[in-house]
Design a protein around this nucleic acid. Sequence first.
RNA 1: GCUGCUGUAGCUCAGAGGUAGAGCACUCCCUUGGUAAGGGAGAGGUCGAGAGUUCAAUUCUCUCCAGCAGCACCA
Length: 652
Amino acid sequence: MAQISLTFPDGSARDFEAGITPAEVAESIARSLAKKAISATVNGAHHDLQWPIEADASIAINTMADDAAALELIRHDCAHIMARAVQSIWPDVKVTIGPVIDNGFYYDFDRAEPFTPEDLGEIEKKMKEIINKRDPVTTEIWERDRAVKHYQANNEPYKVELIESIPGDEPLRMYWHGHWQDLCRGPHLQHTGQVPADAFKLMSVAGAYWRGDSDRAMLQRIYGVAFKTREDLKAHLHMLEEAAKRDHRRLGREMSLFHMQEEAPGQIFWHPNGWRIYTTLQDYMRRKQHADGYVEVNTPQVVNRTLWEKSGHWANYQEHMFIVEVDEDHAREKTINALKPMNCPCHVQIYNDGLKSYRDLPLRMAEFGSCNRYEPSGALHGIMRVRGFTQDDAHIFCREDQIEAECAKFIEFLSSVYSDLGFDKFEIMFATRPEKRVGTEESWDKMEAALENAIKLTGHAYTLDPGEGAFYAPKLDFKLTDAIGRVWQCGTFQVDPNLPERLGATYVGEDGAKHRPFMLHRACLGSFERFIGILIENWAGKLPFWLAPRQVVVASIVSDADDYVHAVVDRLTARGVRAEADIRNEKINYKVREHSMGKVPVILACGMNEVADGTVSVRRLGEKQTSVVSLDSVADELAQDALPPDLKHKSH
RNA sequence: GCUGCUGUAGCUCAGAGGUAGAGCACUCCCUUGGUAAGGGAGAGGUCGAGAGUUCAAUUCUCUCCAGCAGCACCA
């Protein structure tokens, strides 16, 4: 037997016979280690204890103390145990795949009847039984024909299809959890009892297409979460509750920001409070863009189909457009229009009106463009994914040699906006030429180099996203991270040589000849609607003072202070602070509770002491402490707080 | 769009084959209270829409609409 040398984490090495398994290695070190072992890391790869090692390697034996390995195995074994439980309750259910995902796992089943919430409880119970059996997990490599025949005989067509899609030179690995068998690349735990029986929970069942293809069968996917300990599970469930409390749909209702109703699906009825956030944000963006050299325009909502035919939207985007047919009696025919789903074709119309010189470039044309897209009903989600929205859209018309500078300028712009809005962390995805594309290699080289150099110029890190560019040019996507670690793609910067071509945009160059400009599509927030949703969830409704729809409530403690309350409100209003009076016949406790729950950042309480001294009692949201301060200094402080960040920077 | 679930008062939800109930919110009265719910009274609903079964439907069935979760989509 050949000898191999295995190197341990402490740097020591020992010789073993080739073909030894990590389980045997662990056994040779200590009995107790062999019992505790769950898997091995061999040459950096996650390795089953039962897989033989044939050559020299580095090896580490993993136990439950190794978080990454432990969680992966627990979740993966949980998926198998769930599938086994399902098949033991309903033997005719067909199994497919069951991978590990963030915090848990899922498994897709084919079953005629839907799983109900009660079914999930029953499955959980069965899973616990299986875990308590401590059935050994075993594995074998099978010949392809044998595996196919096996699954054909067992009426598991999805497994047959899976096998057929695995390349011929890859070994097919089978796993058994007790008598239950599954095709799986592994690794797995040693026995089912290593899965903590009190640290998993089946969460939900939902449809999912077989192989992610909407033309294929709809399967039933059961989602579960699994952890090492019951405490971890409880912490996770608690976190989900906290996340649900930030849900912008819930906060939108509680704070009376907006509502939606079924006569206008996917469109928003903005209430005064919500619209104040919207206009404050829009005013801010307008100032920022103006300061950055943009001109602002506005273009039509309803545009004849002929323009969409020219732009290519009619051919490529029609199913997402609201079509408006106007029956013009006198014309004896219908005029077909579409609500604009994007602003770009209209911006080219403004560009095309009159001759443009190279001296006009770069021309940065911005519009808070209201767009309508007929999104599939299942895609709608609160104000985050809607059918009517407004983009902070702009198109920069420029020469090819200006792309790099414009791109760098935009990255700086976006970085400053995100930081003003409370997002310090964002990521740049650089999407390069896809397989199906138009244009010469030389032009792709230039466009990609321009974007890459621009990023480098700004000193930001970026992630390459190969092959994900548009068919005509590369692009950058900007993803920000919110307060609870979720990632949102909002900003985008897209080079476009295509649309100017289609719509015949030109400029007169230094040589007196006509040239084709490039068009750079760019957005920072994406859509105001979605971005406000993100802001609400990021701040859990407690928006920074300058963005808060209701900034100050001045509350009377006794009604003799009512006149003073009004005077305080007037004083603050004059200083640009959004202040309102609460002189209702309620106790101060009641008022404090209500406005705290309404997420009003500052409550100023006024009783007879304050009236006498010309002071107010200040209570800031989230703080129990109050302080009595002179009205003059509070007015100064709040007036300063109410300034949007761009104006604040100036005044310092 | 697909699969499943849901739709009852402004909100959160209970309910039953015989045309509905709670808490909070709302209105009025009492109370003037010092930092997260003072007390009392009152008003408020075509039970998502349409059709069917039935003596009778908000309840059962079907269709549609909308919402929720996930999938697919996001040129």
